[in-house]
Nucleic acid binder design. Structure first.
Length: 431
RNA sequence: GCCGCCGUAGCUCAGUCUGGUAGAGCAGCGGGCUGUUAACCCGUUGGUCGGUGGUUCAAAUCCACCCGGCGGCGCCA
């Protein structure tokens, strides 16, 4: 390991101390006998001033000729200067090229969306993508910490599956040694099996949806934080969702404060402080009808409806008790009104829409079998899942949270794909 | 799957309606500049106009089909 000193460490150095930095040439401005190099590493950007007469002559020539994104090593003196971007710059004495760029770096100012996506492997080097990825890592870390502190055990579930959670139309089919298998779209069923030993579980792994969804909130591969909890009813799981979301927002506002500021975002814990408003489907319907939306009981909310609703709230809010026809078979019907189910969707405010979907599951064997048949599905396909209800079945609830959607909302990103390193959409599986 | 938009120089786009032999900015290259930070100034190279077929004396421009991409809907996290 020959790099132990980073750009962020320069900020701790006393003015006048001589340091050596390794990084990449992000940009360069030539002024004859003075050259500015913006040197980039994982911790930040440092302006390096290379002056003829101060730097040795061969270093000056190298600075003159070095291409963008070349890896270089510079030795110089730390100077405070209000004209430097971070208030600190390096006055170069010696510059060494570690690895020259073979061509002009393709990512420049003014390039378009398609070009950036086609060159995502290089676009990653931009400060904005770097910053988003740091926040993403913190988000996952904070979520894991909170779940662990609250007694949830992390489980890892299979990616290859045989039966769908939702139905079948949205699965990616793969050849499994001559048998048909699919890529998982949710690990919920496996977690429901796991609660009988671990009681409170979660997993953080990708889910796959083979939907030709062309919107700014859909990916074909996304990271899914799923939680399942034994002995939990609808209200219990909503409380977990609230507290988890709050922990994430609160944590990020502290631990990613600099990154959020760099993105121009102010994330205050108050925007996600529990309790969240909870409205039933029927109440949501009233709001929509008052707004003049032509919708009647039994219709599911579309994107337009979600957007209108979510503009009514300042905080994330739950919509519960959907008509059972609009939800998957495993949702628990409300014992007080079996035409609706005990589900809870969490919608982000400001038009961002659904970021969490969940609720209470059916734990009764006969009811589950009946609901599978009602949905025109084959009980045989769900044999092991139904089997769970035959041995000490208990009430339980869970939910799934889309990591990229959460970032999309918190960072107000233009598109959910900005929240991942190499986004996968119906038209993009490369690079 | 449905609806809409786009494809012209390495990149971002104008030119398409009203057909007449290809234009700008940036990048590159050459030169200049000791305080820039999307640096700037002068000069300059660069194009089978996404593909195929059709209409026409003549097609980047009009027509048909195809390919690729973007956005919206449905579906969802």
């Amino acid at each position: 390991m020959y790099k132990t000193f980073y750009i962020k460490d320069v900020l701790q150095c006393r003015e006048g101390s001589e340091v050596e930095l390794i990084g990449w040439v992000r940009s360069k401005r030539r002024h004859g006998k003075l050259i500015f190099i913006d040197l980039r590493d994982s911790t930040g950007v440092m302006q390096v001033a290379v002056k003829q007469g101060i730097a040795d002559e061969s270093s000056f020539v190298k600075a003159l000729e070095v291409g963008l994104e070349s890896a270089i090593k510079v030795r110089g003196v730390v100077k405070r200067d209000p004209r430097a971007p971070e208030g600190v710059e390096l006055h170069c004495n010696r510059l060494e090229i570690l690895s020259e760029s073979l061509d002009d770096f393709p990512i420049r100012k003014g390039v378009g969306l398609k070009f950036l996506l086609d060159n995502r492997h290089l676009h990653l080097r931009s400060p904005k993508v770097t910053t988003i990825m740091k926040i993403r890592a913190n988000l996952m870390d904070i979520a894991r910490r909170w779940l662990k502190e609250n007694g949830f055990i992390e489980v890892n579930c299979p990616t290859f599956i045989t039966a769908a959670v939702e139905g079948g139309a949205t699965l990616f089919k793969v050849d499994y040694f001559g048998r048909v298998a699919y890529l998982t779209q949710s690990v919920q069923f496996y977690q429901e099996a796991a609660i009988y030993s671990l009681e409170k579980v979660y997993s953080l792994q990708p889910s796959f949806r083979a939907e030709l969804s062309r919107t700014r909130r859909h990916l074909t591969e996304f990271w899914h934080l799923e939680v399942e909890m034994a002995y939990a009813e609808l209200n219990d799981i909503m409380k977990v969702i609230e507290e988890l979301i709050y922990a994430i927002v609160n944590g990020l506002s502290r631990e990613s404060e600099k990154e959020l500021r760099d993105l121009g975002r102010v994330v205050k814990p108050e925007i996600a402080e529990p309790p969240y408003p909870k409205i039933r489907y029927s109440e949501a319907l009233d709001i929509l009808q008052q707004k003049g939306v032509n919708i009647s009981w039994g219709d599911d909310f579309g994107a337009d409806e979600e957007r209108i609703l979510s503009k009514e709230f300042e905080k994330p809010f739950f919509v519960t008790h959907y008509p059972r026809e609009t939800k998957a078979f495993y949702h628990m019907p409300d014992p007080g009104n079996p035409s609706v189910c005990l589900n809870a969707d969490l919608l982000a405010p400001g038009g961002y829409g659904e970021i969490v979907g969940g609720g209470q599951r059916i734990h009764d064997y006969n009811l589950l079998v009946e609901r599978i048949k009602e949905n025109g599905l084959n009980v045989e396909d769900y044999k092991w899942y139904v089997d769970l209800r035959r041995y000490g079945s208990v009430p339980h609830s869970g939910f799934g949270l889309g990591i990229e959607r959460m970032l999309w909302w918190l960072l107000q990103l233009p598109h959910i794909r900005s929240a991942c390193l190499f986004p996968r959409t119906p038209t993009r599986v490369y690079p």
